[in-house]
Every structure is written in C-alpha cells, then in structure tokens.
C-alpha cells in the first residue's frame, strides 16, 4: 500500500509519508504525545498556534464537553514564536517528519512578522496560517470571514516566508467558504486546511450562565464531521491546490470519507484527547482499510465521490 502523499502547491511541494497529520491545538508541541507513539510515523504534526508575543490565553472555564464534541475558548495561550524557535523547535524530530507551525496574529503586520521569523528556521516544514480562530478578540475570525483580508494576510505571509510551504486554515463560520478559499489560492497559498472549529455555545440551565468564561467557543469533535466534509468537498471543487481535511475524524473510515470528498491529507484533532494513541494508530488502520477496499494508494481514492 502506498500511503505517501505529495502536496503540490503553487510554489512549493510538501511530501508526507502518509496523510495523517495532527491538528493545531490538540497535540501540544508533539512532545506531549511522544510517550504514546512514534512522532516520526506520522505524516507530520501541526504545533499549537504561535503568536509574535507570549499570550496568557482566556480565563477559565475554557473547555466544555458537549454531545459528541467539545467547545473550547483557550484563547491561543502560548509562549510566543521566539521561545518556540529557541527552546522547543530544537527538541522536535524535524529530520524525520514534517513539523508544521500554526501562526496567529491580531494584525496583518504581525502575521508578516511571524512569517519572517519562521522562514529562517530549517526545522519548520510548513506554515499554517490561522485566519479562523473564533476565540480571540481584536480580529480573530475576522481575517477568515473577509475575502479581502484573507487575501491580504495570505499574500504577506507568502512574501515574507518565501522558503516555506504555505497552508491557510479556513473557518466554517462563513456564508461561502469556496469564495474565501479562492481568494487564499489567488494570494499564493500552497494548500488549504478546512475546517477550524464551528462557533458554538453551552448554557447551564440551573445557573443560567454560559459554561465558558468566553461565553462562546469553538465546537470540535465528531459532531462537526458532516460540516467539515461538506466544506472539504466545496473547497476541493473550487480550488486547484490541495485540501487538508479536518473536523471530527476518529477512525480510518472517517479518513477515507475525507479522501473521497477530495482531501489530500487529514488532520486529527479532538480524537487525540479521546485516546492519546489515536493519530499513531490511524496510520496502520488506514493501510488495512484501503487494502480491504482494493485500493493501491491514497492518491487513487482521492476525489472519487460518485454523484450519478
């Protein structure tokens, strides 16, 4: 079975040994999961979102379990890009798998500065631009909801990180995700991740209070899989660059559904919380499942949705 995947972007190509990546914010910096599997066995992992300066994050409670999912409003707590580059990155297995940096900023200029900083780091295989976080004030999801801003951010990161494969992560909280995707593609993105979390809310009826300090938060987990599949399908039809599917994947069957919808690769998110071995186990499970379907490679099942 050939599990390898080539993400052929507009200016760069990223090779994955398999289509299993881990989603930003659900896998720490990778090292947290090292006791539970071989990080090098993954197609790659996407680290917790990095900002230009350290961020404390939102007040608690930040997470709530919902039916078949969870809400989070962590608010991008992180040590900042400089600490990551100097202290964390040297410990990551960059030579053995793809270490992908997710970046977030409150201004277009700060996105550009992050791109400049990471472009010089050889250990970083790709940059994933988060224009879709619903949990941060001062912009936040705004960049991903405004086609012109999405274009502007993507173009600046492209310009400032000329050496890096560039992924842009889209929000489902928009009227027409294909419209945003086309803007991002036109601005030079090499690939698109879809989707980030779906804006949601939870209320405690006894206290009549929201269960999150932030009131609203991002819904993830199996509950959002149908939304993610729909978005992947729409974006894959609208764009020529590769699509990375993310949202509610827990099994190899889920992975194959995303491939059929048109995804080149997938990210595992909330399922890493259900079981810290999930992402590692999915690699051999996908191999077995594709074999049982009589498929010889990941590429040969991609985009094979039958509509007649």
């Amino acid at each position: 079975m050939d599990l390898s995947v080539t993400l052929k972007g507009q200016s760069h190509t990223l090779s994955l040994k398999n289509p299993i990546l881990t989603a930003s914010g659900t896998f720490g910096y990778g090292l947290e999961f090292a006791p539970y599997g071989d990080l090098a066995s993954l197609g790659g992992f996407i680290v917790k979102g990095l900002s230009l300066k350290p961020r404390g994050g939102n007040p608690t409670p930040r997470i709530v379990e919902t039916t078949a999912g969870m809400l989070n409003a962590v608010g991008l707590q992180n040590d900042g890009v400089e600490y990551f580059c100097q202290t964390t990155l040297p410990k990551l297995p960059s030579a053995k798998t793809n270490v992908i940096c997710n970046i977030y900023a409150g201004t277009v200029e700060d996105f550009g500065a992050l791109a400049t900083r990471l472009d010089g780091e050889d250990g970083v295989a790709a940059i994933e631009v988060n224009i879709s976080c619903p949990n941060v004030r001062m912009g936040g999801v705004l960049f991903g909801q405004d086609p012109a801003l999405a274009h502007q951010v993507t173009a600046l990161v492209r310009k400032n990180a000329p050496k890096k494969f560039l992924i842009v992560k889209l929000s489902p909280n928009v009227t027409d995700i294909a419209l945003i995707a086309k803007q991002v593609e036109a601005a030079g993105a090499d690939a698109i991740s879809c989707i980030n979390t779906v804006l949601g809310m939870s209320i405690d009826y006894k206290t009549r209070r929201p269960r999150l300090a932030n009131i609203v938060g991002g819904l993830s987990g199996p509950a959002i899989k149908p939304i993610a599949l729909r978005c992947v399908w729409q974006v894959a039809k609208a764009c020529s660059i590769p699509v990375i599917g993310v949202g509610g994947i827990t099994t190899a069957e889920d992975v194959v559904e995303f491939l059929i919808a048109g995804a080149h690769a997938v990210q595992i998110g909330t399922a890493n919380f259900m079981n810290p071995q999930t992402s590692f186990a999915l690699v051999p499970q996908l191999d077995t499942l594709l074999g049982s379907l009589g498929v010889s490679s990941v590429a040969s099942i991609r985009g094979t949705l039958k509509l007649d």
Partner: peptide
C-alpha cells in the same frame, strides 16, 4: 481538580 479533556498537557483546558 479541574475539568480536563486530554490529561497530557495539550488541550490547555485545565489550567490554573
């Protein structure tokens, strides 16, 4: 004792 999603330091939900 705090609400936890992962228990391994990744979700940043149980912070104090």
């Amino acid at each position: 004792e705090n609400t936890m999603a992962c228990g391994v330091g990744a979700c940043l939900g149980c912070v104090t």
